[in-house]
Computed example of a mutant assay.
Amino acid sequence: MRRAATFIATVAGAGYLRPAPGTWGSAVSLPLAYVVFQIGSFPLIAAATVAACAIGWWATAVTTRGAEDHDPSEIVIDELAGQWIALLPLLYAAWAHDIPALALYPGWISAFVLFRLFDITKPGPIGWADRRGDALGVMLDDVVAGVFAGVGTMILAGIAHGLMGL
């Protein structure tokens, strides 16, 4: 069971990539999100995101049980979950308006950059969640960072499409 948990927690080994395994975890999450979206559209990516949060919490708890470090850098399932949350607004827009997901590439870029920014700097509730010192905190800080990044991406889209008329 521990091997399966480690496989999941490291997103099939992506967490062992160096340098910056969290950024690698986020980068690997992008094509995975696209594939899931292409297979089952928005409902599947939304359900997969919820599943990634739940399974990631379990995998993180199993992987870190008995370890001194509650958030080792090779655990990147939290980055996958947070990055997918950041992508949900643009994938919903693609689905709702029948737009090819990759046509919204500026949103993919902003979701990635904003998620990494919030995950690295950990402002406000993101830092609070990270300081919990347990598996839930490992997942929760990235979930909150994903929400922040998703909202930021929507704001940037509103500015670009509304105020700037692009």
Rank of each mutant, 00 (worst) to 15 (best):
82 G>T: 13
30 L>E: 01
60 T>Y: 08
127 G>V: 11
107 G>A: 13
142 D>M: 03
26 S>I: 06
134 D>V: 03
142 D>R: 06
42 F>Y: 14
41 S>V: 11
28 V>D: 02
95 W>Q: 04
13 G>M: 10
91 L>Q: 11
140 L>Y: 15
45 I>P: 00
27 A>Q: 03
166 L>G: 02
35 V>L: 14
101 A>W: 03
66 G>N: 02
102 L>V: 14
83 Q>I: 04
148 F>T: 00
63 T>R: 01
46 A>I: 06
100 P>M: 10
22 G>R: 12
35 V>N: 07
84 W>G: 00
107 G>V: 05
155 I>N: 04
165 G>V: 12
36 V>I: 15
48 A>I: 10
93 A>H: 13
157 A>F: 12
72 P>G: 06
84 W>L: 05
18 R>D: 00
44 L>M: 10
14 A>C: 10
61 A>N: 12
135 A>D: 08
132 R>T: 00
153 T>R: 02
98 D>K: 04
87 L>K: 06
83 Q>H: 09
25 G>N: 06
103 A>R: 08
62 V>K: 09
25 G>H: 05
12 A>C: 08
36 V>H: 09
153 T>H: 05
50 V>D: 05
99 I>T: 10
1 M>W: 02
5 A>P: 07
135 A>T: 08
13 G>I: 15
36 V>N: 07
125 P>Y: 07
83 Q>T: 14
62 V>N: 04
86 A>P: 11
139 M>K: 07
158 G>V: 11
21 P>Y: 15
88 L>H: 12
49 T>I: 14
94 A>P: 12
77 I>S: 10
139 M>Q: 07
165 G>M: 13
56 G>T: 08
63 T>N: 02
74 E>I: 02
78 D>H: 04
49 T>Q: 13
28 V>T: 09
15 G>I: 05
35 V>R: 01
65 R>I: 01
128 W>G: 02
26 S>N: 07
91 L>R: 13
35 V>W: 12
27 A>H: 00
34 Y>F: 12
142 D>W: 12
114 L>H: 06
67 A>I: 03
156 L>G: 00
151 V>S: 07
131 R>Y: 01
71 D>W: 00
71 D>F: 01
128 W>K: 11
119 D>Q: 04
115 F>L: 03
141 D>N: 10
9 A>Y: 07
5 A>E: 04
96 A>H: 05
76 V>S: 11
120 I>G: 05
78 D>I: 01
2 R>Q: 11
86 A>Q: 10
36 V>W: 14
159 I>F: 07
158 G>P: 13
114 L>I: 06
19 P>N: 05
148 F>D: 03
118 F>K: 09
2 R>E: 07
5 A>N: 01
72 P>T: 06
38 Q>E: 15
19 P>R: 11
4 A>L: 15
137 G>I: 05
65 R>W: 00
87 L>F: 11
40 G>L: 09
65 R>H: 11
27 A>P: 05
22 G>M: 08
